[in-house]
C-alpha cells in the first residue's frame, strides 16, 4: 500500500514536472522538497507510526495557560 502510494506521488510529480515549460533548478528543488514532505507525511499516516505532532509553541501555550488559569482546555 505504502509503495503504491509513494509510486503515485512519484508519478504525479514526474507528470507535473514534465508539463512545465521551463525547469529552473531552484523551482525543481522547491517542488521536490515539498513533495517529499507530502510523501513523508503519507508514510507516517499510512504505516500508523505514532509520531507525536511537534508543538514548537508549547512554551507560549503554557504561559498563556498560566495567564488564563482555568481558561485553557
Amino acid at each position: 500500500m505504502i509503495i503504491l502510494l509513494v509510486l503515485g506521488y512519484v508519478v504525479v510529480g514526474a507528470f507535473e514536472l514534465y508539463m512545465w515549460s521551463d525547469r529552473p533548478w531552484k523551482k525543481v528543488l522547491a517542488y521536490l522538497c515539498t513533495l517529499a514532505l507530502a510523501v513523508t507525511l503519507t508514510v507516517i499516516v499510512v504505516s500508523s507510526w505514532q509520531i507525536p505532532v511537534p508543538q514548537p509553541l508549547r512554551l507560549l501555550e503554557n504561559w498563556v495557560k498560566e495567564l488564563w488559569a482555568g481558561g485553557g482546555q
Binding site: V12, G13, E16, K27, T34, L35, A38, L41, T42
Partner: peptide, 14 residues
Amino acid sequence: RFLVTPVALSMIPA
C-alpha cells in the same frame, strides 16, 4: 502555482 500540488497532497495525510 507550481507549489500547489505538493502542498495540497501533503494536506491530506497531515
